[in-house]
Amino acid sequence: MNQTASTIYIEESNFNLEVYLDPFNKRIRVDDYRGNTNLVLEKAEQLARQHQAEKLIMKARVEDTLPLYERGLQPEAVVDRYFLGSDAHFFSKFYTVERKKNDHWITEDGMIQSIYQLATASDKPLPPKEYELKKADETCAEELAELYRLVFQIYPTPLHDLEYVKKTMQEGTIYYVFFYQGKIVSAASAEVNNFYKNAELTDCATLKEHRKYGLMKIILRELEGELKRQGIYCSYSIARSLSFGMNAVLYQLGYHYRGRLMNNCYIYDKLENMNMWVKNLANC
């Protein structure tokens, strides 16, 4: 099967469907839909079988959730105000026993409890003056790809490829980076959905030797400011459930835990659970 992810659009007489085919992560995701929900689900399951997906994910509106339960999908997470102010409910269905098994769930529950005990205001002093924060452009694509190669053995999107990084920029993804001695040492992006006015803060990476200065928190705040300037107030981020540091950063920035996506994608060095964190930027 082709390992390149793609988005397909299906228009039938009683429904429309936008589906993200993700063969690398052995999943498909319904990103948007209109019309007859039962027919939408029927088509989505047909595509899951056709593409031998192990997991089906659907971003559902609250009024459509009961038919999802009837077809065996389960709720995993919520993003407040995702659809132009209306909540998105992430539902999933698993197609293999292995994809539904997990050994880390209880540990990750404990981590969330620990994070909620942290003080929310734990700002560090600004990093040394050798660190320079900048908005990245296409000239940074090669260095960004190299950073992601160094930090992640495996990543759910092909950020190791500079052409892919350039393509995301051309499609509206915003990157901010920290330079140290002329080299990018930390980066993150905001993947903007201009139609529904939401953004996912993602692609967070800092080289190990530069992690003590709180660079990521500064980058994420800068991205939030950029989103607010564009009139986008629904900000969410999906963090590796086993990464205490990244989950703690999001909590301390005022994000709220909204669920966990089981065995969601291949990242870092294996298939991992991912925690959902959400923030309403209109409140800050």
Rank of each mutant, 00 (worst) to 15 (best):
K101R: 09
G182H: 05
R260L: 09
A119E: 15
L253Q: 12
K208R: 14
I184Q: 05
H160M: 05
E272Q: 12
F24M: 03
N193Q: 08
F90K: 02
I10A: 07
V185K: 05
A282W: 04
N36M: 00
L201I: 15
L39M: 10
A205S: 08
E226V: 13
I115P: 08
D22S: 06
S235C: 15
T7G: 01
Y213M: 00
L133N: 02
S243C: 11
A48Q: 09
R71P: 04
T206M: 08
L281K: 11
R34E: 14
A282F: 04
N247K: 07
M58W: 04
V19C: 05
K100Q: 14
R240C: 15
R34Q: 14
L84A: 13
Y266R: 15
V30W: 03
E222L: 00
L227F: 12
E200K: 12
M274G: 13
K212A: 07
I267S: 15
Y148E: 02
F24Y: 15
V19E: 07
N194T: 03
E222C: 10
M1H: 13
Q113T: 03
K166T: 12
P128N: 07
I174T: 10
S13M: 01
I184K: 02
Y213K: 00
I112W: 12
A5L: 07
M216F: 09
Y33E: 04
S235R: 10
H160R: 04
R27Q: 13
M111G: 06
S13N: 04
Q153T: 12
N25Y: 13
L144V: 01
K93D: 01
T139Y: 02
A190Y: 11
S235Y: 11
L47C: 02
V30I: 14
P23I: 00
K93L: 09
E191I: 14
T139V: 00
N36A: 07
L133D: 05
I112E: 10
E12L: 02
K93C: 06
F90L: 13
S241R: 10
P156E: 13
M274L: 15
K279E: 08
I106H: 08
N280L: 05
L162A: 10
Y131K: 02
N273T: 02
D22T: 07
M1G: 15
I184A: 05
T173A: 08
D137H: 07
Y164M: 03
A60T: 08
E138W: 04
K59D: 11
H89V: 10
A88L: 09
A53R: 03
L215F: 06
Y33V: 09
T7E: 12
L242V: 14
K212M: 08
Q52K: 13
L66W: 09
T157F: 14
Q50R: 09
D269Q: 14
R49Y: 08
F244E: 04
G225I: 05
L84F: 01
I154E: 15
R221Q: 13
K208M: 06
H104Y: 11
Q170A: 06
R29H: 08
E54C: 06
D32A: 13
P158R: 02
R71G: 00
V78A: 03
R34W: 06
C234P: 03
L147Q: 03
R81C: 05
N14S: 15
E63D: 14
N36Y: 02
S13Y: 00
S237H: 09
N25H: 10
L126H: 08
Q230G: 01
N247V: 14
M276N: 03
Y95C: 08
L68N: 02
P67F: 01
M1K: 11
R81E: 10
K270G: 10
C140R: 00
